[in-house]
Structure formats: structure tokens, C-alpha cells
Computed example of a mutant assay.
Amino acid sequence: MESRRLQQYIRSIELNRAEVPSFTEYPFNLAAIRNLETLSFHPKVTFIVGENGSGKSTILESIAVSYGFNAEGGTKNFNFSSRATHSDLNKYIRLVKGLKRPEDGFFLRAESFYNLATNIDQLDAEPSFGPPLINFYGGRSLHGQSHGESFFAVFQNKFRGNGIYILDEPEAALSPSRQMSMITRIHELVQQGSQFIIATHSPIIMAYPHARIYQIQEGFEVVKYEETEHYQIMRAFINNTQKMLDILME
């Protein structure tokens, strides 16, 4: 087991609590971060789930930036910044890496995907001696496709395997059937030596088996899939739709 953990790309993060200026200020006042000491990741797939505002995207962003990714997404080669809104949490966490180095990597976040697509078009409009960047994303401008199509084009074409992939709410643009297709793509990439860290609200995506699921409440709690609030709420709604609607609309 220890040998396998040494081979994964990101083993854990540790919050340097002694350096935190104040646990009453953002982002350290978020319960998930206020109670954070060490967070260990699964060698293959780790999900971070929780309510809006719980801090999951802030944690994911800090991991990505600490690893060398641009705060707004992309590979390590992207350095655009549309608006500097990311927190300074990455300055206070220690990233514990394994011995193995990835051959590929990507930070994909739903809220700034438009900015990423724009930057790709801008870079391709400049003189270059190499092939257009968009060739690595399926050959069509991401702005020339629907939001869901462009999202999925990244999964299908840019992710090559043997990589570290950090995904923030990837379901935002995907239909339920596309979310199921994403499970297939995740599994293909895991079999090719990849590691995923994913923040999601999707009961479909988080059903990927043999993953570690952290549910954020007052802190990070490891839970089974069926124990997540997302699964329980969705199951209750589907199994008792009219009753739930009557309660919601009374």
C-alpha cells in the first residue's frame, strides 16, 4: 500500500496552521479549512463534496495552484489572468507529492472555463511555429461549440493519461448522459495511470467505484457513496417526486 501511495502524484496536503494569520478571516474561517490539518488523497480518484460555500472549490484551487497550475485553469503552461480572485490559501498549505512525476496534467474549473477557451483562441491568433493549440482540444474552437460539447472535448482530446487532473464541478455543463460518459472517460484515464481530484455536486459522477469521498460539514469526513447528502436527496426526490414537490410548494 505504501509503495502505491509513493507512486501517486499527490499524496496529501497539510495546512501550516502556525502560519495562518487569523482563523476569523476568509478563507480560514470556512469550517473545512478552520479544522484542516492533513488531507490524504486516493491514488486514483478522490471526490470532495459539500454544500455551496463549504470551501471545496477553495481547497481544490489551492491544490492546483500549489502544484503549479494557473488559478483559472489549464495546463501548467497557461498564465492568463482575467481577474485575480483566488485566495492565498496555497501559501499556507504543504503539498506532499509521490515519487512519480506525471506526463500530463490539467486544472479544469467550470466558473472560468470561458476565460480558458478565450485564451486558447487568443494564443492561436498570434504568430507561431508550432501547430495551433486548438488541435490538442479536438480541432474546433471551444467557443464554437455548446458549453457541454466544449467541456467534453477537453476530457476526450486534451487528457492523455499518466496525468494529474484536478476538476472543479465538471458536471456544470454536462447533461446526465454526458456525466455517465465522463465516468467511462475517468475510468479509461485511471487505467492509464492517472489520478483525479474532483469537487462535484453530481450524484452520477461521484458514483465512480473504489474512490474516496470526502464530505465537508464541520470538517472533512470520509463517507460511502450512499451516505452522501447528494445521493440521499436525489434518491428521495426521484422515489417520492410528488410528495417532495408538495412539501416544497406548500
Rank of each mutant, 00 (worst) to 15 (best):
N77S: 12
N79R: 10
F80T: 13
F80N: 14
F80M: 08
S81F: 06
S82K: 12
S82V: 10
R83K: 12
T85D: 08
T85S: 07
S87V: 04
S87N: 07
D88R: 10
L89T: 06
L89D: 05
N90C: 09
K91M: 10
L95A: 08
L95V: 03
V96H: 14
K97M: 03
L99T: 11
L99F: 02
R101K: 15
R101T: 15
P102M: 08
D104Y: 11
G105D: 03
L108T: 06
L108W: 00
R109A: 00
R109F: 04
A110W: 03
A110V: 04
A110S: 15
A110Y: 02
S112A: 14
F113G: 09
Y114A: 14
I120E: 11
D121V: 01
Q122W: 09
Q122G: 11
L123I: 13
D124A: 12
A125F: 09
G130W: 02
G130F: 10
G130Q: 12
P131M: 13
P131H: 13
L133N: 12
F136I: 10
F136K: 15
G138Y: 03
R140A: 13
S141G: 10
L142V: 07
G144D: 15
G144E: 13
H147D: 07
H147I: 00
G148D: 00
G148Y: 01
S150Y: 00
F151K: 01
F152G: 07
F152S: 05
V154H: 02
F155H: 09
Q156D: 14
N157C: 01
K158L: 07
K158F: 07
R160E: 10
G161H: 08
G161C: 02
N162D: 14
I164C: 04
I164Y: 02
I166Y: 01
L167I: 06
L167V: 06
D168P: 04
D168L: 10
E169W: 04
P170E: 03
E171Y: 09
A172H: 00
L174T: 12
P176R: 03
R178C: 04
R178M: 08
Q179Y: 05
S181F: 01
M182P: 04
M182N: 02
M182V: 13
I183N: 05
T184L: 08
T184Y: 06
T184W: 00
R185E: 10
H187T: 08
E188A: 08
L189G: 06
Q192T: 07
S194R: 13
S194Q: 06
Q195V: 00
Q195P: 03
F196V: 02
F196W: 01
I197P: 00
I197F: 02
I198T: 00
A199L: 10
H201G: 05
H201R: 03
P203R: 06
P203M: 02
I205S: 07
I205D: 04
M206R: 00
